[in-house]
Design a protein around this nucleic acid. Structure first.
Lengths: 242, 242
DNA sequence: TCAAGTTGTCTATGATAATAGACAACTTGA
DNA sequence: TCAAGTTGTCTATTATCATAGACAACTTGA
């Protein structure tokens, strides 16, 4: 294959190779810690120059998906984040327990009104004013999930600003005097990532996502916030404990 | 946007613009016959040089999706193929009625054995020998669908070779003395195109497909062939008549 | 210790991508 | 008829993509 062959596609060869390797990892053909085939062998399977393979590997290494060791080989770094679904889970604790650095960032906050379903989840009336917060969470520099969070605008007035400053749901709730909370009803489904989330999660289009709808409750069991989260399926593994 | 900005993505700018326009057509933002915005305007919306837009438009024109008219503008050519689901439908007739040139090509043929479901559809026993034919159908040069066809290997021995030569399901059946047949049970669902079909249909990954499972019967109502077809949803429109 | 195999780095070349500016050729509507 | 707006074509420049070859630096196992 030469650049001429793929000229009309508009997708660089190294990108095709990188996507191929990444898919191999996501599909489990290469597990965490596994050694990839040598650069020469990869070059032959994709019928591509070794330097093109190196470009692909460099891109994957930059994203922390593989790690090249001189003289030895290239190894799969990517490991799915073990995400236990306990009653009291904090993203930062889960990521920290995995030996990684948790980060959060607000994408957008806006006013909204409760649909019937949102109202039911939050124990409010349909049409009640809500704050809607769009946020992303990362482990080291890898995006793990994007979530849409809704809260009562009356009880949590200015929540968007507070969250943007604290970058943490827990700290934001502390600001309103809530010292603790726990997970309530949780629903998990799967789907295909849409273009917006794909860009935010740094995922190629068409990749699977885990969709989680959950409501957090205060210690009295009253709803505080309800969330609609989309996790990059290839980067996380939910653990349901019995 | 400059090439530097998107360097790490491995996807050419013109391709992003072309995909954007194509998606606009697929979504119905631009209908068949519509005039696209001027090249300058498109360049501004994508923050790209006009020549890059021209490259994108040239790629779309090559695929027959748009048509540029000097001094006037660029127009949407793409029109969904109206595909009536009648009892007696032949792909070539449908495409011909649309004023386009039908084509067919075999991708692959192989031996297979009947799963329980295939056996039920074809009125055979589980494990019965089958011929499996993978084929693609086009209107002019646009791929419309890929289909996997199964036939009894006993009754239609060598069907793969015959189909490869005649490039027509109808002619292949004629070779076995079947002058006419009609559509039996048909199930329609939708899904996301997989990588293999995406390449065959010349579709970007993540695009929707129409999945049709159908069995054709002879005039006595006995099953002849059963098919699993994947249509590019943005190129075809099924018409169910009452 | 050594050979084989691995990744890292260097130079070099040609093709493609993207930008930029200018002008021609054409269509449309006033 | 004319002005404004459109697509078509040309030259030119810079950066990236992909290939190619050679060798260094390193790891591993015999």
């Amino acid at each position: 294959m030469s650049m001429q062959d793929t000229a009309s596609s508009g997708v660089a060869l190294w990108r095709l190779v990188a996507d191929g390797i990444e898919r191999g990892i996501a599909d489990g053909r290469f597990a965490a810690g596994d050694k990839l085939p040598g650069e020469m062998e990869i070059a032959e399977t994709y019928r591509v120059n070794r330097h093109t393979v190196r470009r692909a590997i460099a891109a994957l290494a930059e994203r922390g998906i593989v790690r090249a060791e001189r003289g030895s080989g290239t190894y799969v770094e990517a490991q799915k984040l073990a995400y236990p679904l306990r009653s009291r889970t904090r993203f930062s604790e889960i990521v920290g327990a995995d030996g990684r650095e948790p980060h959060g960032r607000m994408i957008e906050a806006s006013e909204d009104v409760a649909t019937r379903e949102l109202a039911r989840e939050l124990g409010l009336k349909t049409g009640a004013p809500l704050v809607r917060i769009e946020a992303i969470r990362l482990a080291d520099r890898t995006p793990i999930c994007v979530s849409t969070t809704w809260l009562s605008a009356e009880r949590f007035s200015g929540a968007g600003t507070v969250f943007a400053a604290t970058r943490s749901m827990t700290k934001m709730l502390e600001h309103y005097g809530i010292r603790d909370y726990r997970r309530g009803a949780t629903r998990i489904t799967a789907g295909i990532v849409d273009a917006t989330d794909a860009a935010r999660l740094d995922l190629p289009l068409g990749r699977p996502i885990l969709v989680v709808d959950a409501t957090d409750l205060d210690l009295d069991g009253k709803p505080l916030v309800t969330k609609h989260s989309r996790f990059a399926a290839e980067r996380v593994e939910f653990l349901v404990e019995s």
